[in-house]
Amino acid sequence: MEHQLRIAVVQAAPVLFDKESALEKVADYAAQARNEGARLLVFPEVFVSGYPRGLTFGARVGSRTVEGREDFARYWRSAIVIPGEDTSRLGEIARETGLYLVIGVVERDGEFSGATLYNSIIYIGPDGELLGKHRKLVPTGSERLLWGQGDGSTLTVIDTPFGRIGGLICWENYMPLARMALYAKGVDIWIAPTADSRDTWQATLQHIACEGRCYVISSNQFVTKSTYPSDLQGYGDIAGDEQILCRGGSAVVGPLGEYIVKPLFNEEGLLVADLDMALVAQSRFDFDVAGHYSRPDVFELTVHETKQTIVNFKG
């Protein structure tokens, strides 16, 4: 395994519901990361095409509005199919820059109804190949109106020359059993894209680093009202909010819980860090959560990794 790795983390936001804006920003930041000598580049939760913070989509208990449905349709149009034309374009960016790309996306179901959206992470290799994806298991709060639930078939961990990469999205990271499932797959670099900019999120990152004895990379959007199209039907939902809607907090934490890059707040930016992958094994000397510190004689976790479907067609 290669021991030295330079990574980069994006803290930015596209124009909400504007896929072209998001893809252009991916290309721009990939070029910057390449120039910085990075080999792995991480983007925030649902970077393509934005986290609709503050929008209600006209939903109340027992009713939805026509205007809210129109905003949802706009969100749906800005989503991507995996694999598809947009992942091929992202693959071209990865190939041109030689980067591993980890990108939060809004995924549109391309297999069944075509209407359900998912909050997903995609992993793309430096050869442009789509290596895998993860769908958020439980959308949080009002997110459940927008996104469906993922299943165990996308608890994805990717092998690379510098270690195994995997992770969970935002508040999935508070699910102990989901974390354990990934620890058991030997994650060395934990990806935690998020929309949580609170101080308590930083404690979560440090806890996972200490618990998993892995590097933790968290990427959040820096969002201002200027990134929201003024012609959104629901723009009035945020009209009275502060100009900064999400302050960020992207950070990189080492396998003993120390900051490699401290959280960035209140500005857009690209974080760059050098990771010594040898520290992962060193940190597990006295605590290996899925190894010598586990007790399979006392605890057992069963993970269902079969893809779940309501209809099975048999010839």
Rank of each mutant, 00 (worst) to 15 (best):
M1H: 12
E2C: 04
E2V: 13
L5K: 04
A8F: 03
Q11N: 06
L16D: 03
S21P: 05
A22V: 01
L23G: 02
E24N: 14
Q32I: 05
G37M: 05
L40Y: 01
F43D: 05
E45T: 03
S49F: 06
Y51I: 09
L55A: 10
A59G: 05
V61N: 09
T65S: 14
T65D: 05
E67P: 01
A73C: 03
R74M: 00
Y75W: 07
W76Y: 07
G84N: 07
E85T: 12
D86L: 08
S88Y: 12
Y100I: 04
I103T: 07
G104N: 13
V105E: 08
E107P: 02
R108L: 11
G114N: 03
A115V: 12
T116K: 13
N119S: 15
G125K: 11
L131Y: 03
L137M: 13
L137G: 09
V138G: 00
T140N: 10
T140Q: 13
L146V: 13
Q149T: 10
D151T: 08
S153P: 00
I158D: 05
D159G: 07
R164P: 03
G167H: 06
C170R: 04
E172R: 03
Y174P: 00
M180Q: 13
G186W: 02
V187Y: 03
I189H: 00
D199L: 15
W201H: 10
I208F: 11
A209P: 09
A209K: 11
C210F: 08
E211W: 10
N220A: 15
F222E: 09
T224E: 13
K225M: 08
S226F: 11
P229H: 13
L232G: 04
D237R: 05
I238T: 08
E242H: 09
E242R: 13
S250Y: 02
A251T: 02
G257K: 09
G257V: 07
I260F: 04
K262L: 09
P263D: 05
L264T: 15
F265T: 10
F265W: 14
D274W: 00
L275D: 02
L275W: 04
M277R: 01
F285Y: 06
H292C: 01
Y293R: 08
Y293L: 09
F299V: 08
T302S: 12
T306P: 00
K307P: 10
Q308R: 15
Q308D: 11
T309Q: 14
G315T: 11
G315R: 11
